[in-house]
């Protein structure tokens, strides 16, 4: 096994262990909250998942910009952008799902047309559109450029999602951690568990993107080899006929 593969496996195992530890601390060790009671336990996974969604779309945008700029245009940036967007869609879906599970006992409904929820659903749809665009058969450069532009346009929604709780004074509470004053409103064992959740899911994101990127790169290299083989076969047939 190469050093790279060992490192990737290490990241994956560490992420798995840390996520398991987050669940154990969140469910059995930390106390219930004064107001929210046991509902607070969702706090240890819901904000970290939302954070990963923001991070993933940020990385997709940065990689797309690097792909669009001709001096730095490389297949790798396009593949990283795609891999990160896939992880982002996965974590946005989980954010909506965990938020919905929390919302049922807290607000009495699985879903409400709150600004934050709606803008998050819009974000989810935007990147689903981005992934749908990538699935359409076209040349590699054309797909890279077109999807990079779509990623840039889609990223405009990310700050709207985050700021929606301030702009529209919604049902959803303001962020407990990622707030403008960076005043963390969680303390003690709850704060440490939340921090662990953030690190654990970030590690999981890194592992997911890394694995997806390598798979896509191998697929692209395989496609290149097939084209080269087809050209060689064609040339040899023409030589024989001459």
């Amino acid at each position: 096994m190469s050093r790279n593969a060992k490192l990737k496996r290490g990241v994956g195992i560490t992420a798995l262990v840390m996520i398991a530890l987050t669940f154990w601390l969140g469910l059995y060790v930390t106390p219930p909250a004064e107001v929210m009671g046991n509902l607070v336990r969702m706090l240890y996974i819901h904000p970290p998942m939302a954070w990963i969604a923001y991070l993933a779309y940020g990385i997709t945008t940065a990689a797309s910009l690097l792909y669009l700029w001709k001096r730095t245009r490389r297949r790798e940036w396009d593949l990283i952008a795609a891999a990160s967007a896939e992880a982002g869609v996965f974590f946005t879906g989980l954010t909506i799902l965990t938020g919905s599970i929390w919302g049922r006992p807290a607000w009495g409904v699985w879903w409400t047309w709150d600004a934050l929820l709606t803008s998050t659903a819009v974000l989810f749809l935007l990147y689903l559109g981005y992934l749908a665009l990538r699935q359409v058969p076209m040349s590699e450069t054309k797909r890279g450029v077109r999807s990079a532009i779509a990623a840039l346009v889609a990223f405009i929604d990310v700050p709207i999602v985050h700021e929606s709780v301030y702009w529209w004074k919604t049902l959803h509470q303001t962020p407990s951690v990622l707030n403008p004053s960076l005043n963390v409103e969680v303390h003690g064992s709850m704060a440490w568990t939340l921090l662990l959740g953030f690190v654990a899911f970030t590690m999981a994101y890194v592992w997911m993107v890394w694995t997806r990127y390598e798979t896509s790169k191998r697929q692209a290299e395989l496609a290149d080899l097939e084209v080269e083989r087809a050209i060689r076969e064609r040339l040899s047939v023409e030589e024989v006929s001459l």
Binding site: L125, L126, G129, A154
Partner: peptide
Amino acid sequence: SLLPLLLFPV
């Protein structure tokens, strides 16, 4: 179908 899918959310 891609244009409305991308355009409406944006």
